[in-house]
């Protein structure tokens, strides 16, 4: 392995370490914040770092979408709702049924441990060891993914757009003010 390749690999590792640290620390901070506004901010950090990871995976289109849709639109939505609903929380973790939920977390940890072990143990498998960008033209670019979306996955694409429409309508219906008086058309 020559020096240039080695230093490129080195840089790549450092970038990956920083980004994944951002993702995980952001995630942990999100989950542990008492104030939802801080949580949202940490989640933005997580999603931004995640977009970076996407980029290192040559998923350029998805990286941009992650920033636009998640770190942008969805998080703004969260901020709005947090502003509407925000109330001081006396205890961040409910006492009731804590044992069950702690057992659930432990069980999730067990699953995590098992799968992580398997993945690290089998890291030499071709599928898990692959590290190069595949020799596909325009891999992960808007045009390549867009071509797939509008050719092979046209029907699911239209279906998902319908789902989004439904979600919008449903959101409007759910948050609409229900008046007590009968003059309202909503009952």
């Amino acid at each position: 392995m020559n020096l240039a390749a080695h230093s490129a690999s080195m840089a790549e590792t450092i970038v990956f370490a920083i980004l994944s640290a951002g993702v995980l620390v952001g995630g942990l901070l999100t989950v542990t914040r008492r104030n939802p506004v801080s949580a949202v901010m940490c989640l933005v950090l997580t999603f931004a770092a995640l977009a970076g990871l996407f980029a290192t995976l040559s998923a350029h289109f998805l990286a941009v979408l992650q920033i636009l849709v998640y770190a942008g639109a969805v998080m703004v939505l969260f901020i709005f709702v947090v502003m509407m609903v925000n109330r001081e929380e006396s205890t961040p973790i409910a006492r009731q049924g804590l044992v069950t939920r702690a057992a659930g977390v432990l069980a999730a940890g067990y699953v995590f441990y098992r799968v992580a072990w398997l993945v690290s143990h089998e890291r030499t498998l071709p599928l898990l060891a692959a590290s190069a960008t595949p020799p596909v033209k325009d891999f992960g670019t808007v045009s390549a993914v867009g071509a797939l979306l509008f050719a092979d996955f046209l029907f699911p694409f239209e279906a998902i757009s319908l789902l989004l429409l439904l979600a919008v309508v449903g959101g409007v219906m759910l948050t609409r003010h229900v008046r007590e008086d009968h003059s309202s058309r909503v009952s």
Binding site: A94, Q96, G97, T100, R101, A103, G104, V105, A107, A108, Y110, V111, R114, V115
Partner: peptide, 20 residues
């Protein structure tokens, strides 16, 4: 119990048992 989180916790325990 009517507590969604506990339902999910039991779901996680079931998953762990399955994995075990």
């Amino acid at each position: 119990v009517g507590d969604v989180q506990r339902y999910l916790a039991i779901f996680a325990i079931g998953l762990a048992a399955l994995v075990y």
